[in-house]
Write a protein that binds this DNA or RNA. Structure first.
Lengths: 242, 242
DNA sequence: GCGTGTATATCGCCG
DNA sequence: CGGCGATGTACACGC
């Protein structure tokens, strides 16, 4: 095993991507603790120190360490030991490898940019560009991510045609009861500290039953968002400015 | 490429774990949309249909599909196409592979049980077993996960020596302002609907500055939890951790 | 299946 | 670095 340990150390030093498949036992100690008995898994060590252990099923790793962890490899009584230390918070992952089924190292390059569309940020942008189209009402955009003293941060602040402040809380998919009370917190605080004329609108693609009940009781409003309109407004908004 | 596509289809049919390293281009359409240009990545396909695409750095996959997705492989103009379809919500991931650096398939077995200690559930259990030791006060455990009409679910309900209901909200690490208002919601509702004699205690390893301010203002209490004490109280059912 | 809440969540932003 | 909120969150559990 020592020759394999040495080869692994070399690969890691050269900042290669290491893929090891084998029978192992795993222990984790840190913010929590975990133990996993013997079984066959895939271990991936990346050049930034991130480490993943994958079982034969499931999209999530059973154990892991994030980037900037320091990995150490050595042999011990006919087994290979991989130990990863994360400095802060202090966390330690130990993998004891009893049998190696495969060991692959790669020098891979990937400089492409990852582009995503359709997140909450896009919904907020579209509302601020064209409130009438997205919320069906003429509103004047005022501010984004406004700090409401100790209550948190309101997504959007606008002003309606009667001069009321309108606090908008955006959720990408289904708004839950939590979102209602988050919005209520901002509305209450603004009414008390700035101006009693404040409305609250929850914007999402859907709303749960209990959230709808709570919203009604608290005198807040809901607007269903149409992702196609978000897309069209952002596309049109770009060409409109150019 | 067609021979490789055929080999891959065979591996997937045999429910093997597939690890492919190569230069590819990725597109995702579903709840949101994403695009990733050419670059070298690791693609893992598991027997339950879960699929991962990892870049050379970072602990999280750049693209993925969870279990129960259906994967399809075919060749097209000298390139390999891997397409994964997730039925609900309807999501589609397409990987166009232009150059294969490595292709490894494994039949791995892993039946070990994963045991973890130190999550929020453990803190709650310890409090209910020995409130005096964990919270420094004689309390009588009453209920867990109690539904508070439409407000949500209170973690723990106990009764103090004066007969007051005590609502306990537990956070594993640092309690934020959100946790304070969550607790307040339960306390307010219980006072209004059941009995005005209700206290609220927030339990965590720490609390943020603004959460402490909000807590004070709302007349709620904070108790710092000691994970070592949690362990001591539960130790009967735990061996080998810590 | 929907609703609710946790996670070694991780990640990104901002002060 | 702490604090706060989003995530294609995933995942488990309850109804």
């Amino acid at each position: 095993m020592e020759d394999i340990a040495e080869a692994l150390r070399e690969s890691i030093k050269r900042r290669e991507t290491v893929i090891l498949v084998g029978e192992c036992e795993i222990e984790y100690k840190g913010r929590a603790s975990s133990k996993l008995g013997r079984g066959e898994r895939i271990v991936i060590i990346k050049r930034d120190g991130s480490l993943l252990v994958h079982r034969p099923t499931g999209v999530n790793p059973v154990n892991y360490q994030p980037e900037s962890s320091l990995v150490n490899v050595y042999s011990e009584e006919d087994r290979l030991v991989i130990r990863s230390l994360r400095p802060r918070p202090g966390e330690e992952l130990t993998i004891k490898v009893y049998r190696i089924l495969g060991l692959h190292t790669y020098r891979i390059e990937d400089n492409a940019q990852f582009e995503m569309w359709g997140d909450e940020e896009d919904i907020k942008k579209a509302i601020m560009v064209n409130p009438k189209e997205l919320l069906g009402e003429d509103l004047n955009p005022l501010e984004e991510e406004m700090r409401i003293s100790t209550a948190g941060y309101a997504d959007l602040i606008l002003v309606d045609s009667s001069g009321n402040y309108v606090v908008v809380e955006v959720k990408r998919e289904t708004a839950s009861v939590d979102a209602v009370y988050q919005l209520k917190r901002y509305v209450d605080r603004l009414r008390r500290e700035i101006n009693p004329r404040v409305r609250g609108i929850l914007v999402a693609q859907g709303i749960t039953r209990s959230a709808a009940v709570a919203l009604e009781k608290e005198g807040l409003e809901f607007r269903r968002i149409n992702m196609r309109k978000v897309y069209e407004v952002l596309k049109g908004g770009l060409t409109g400015f150019l």
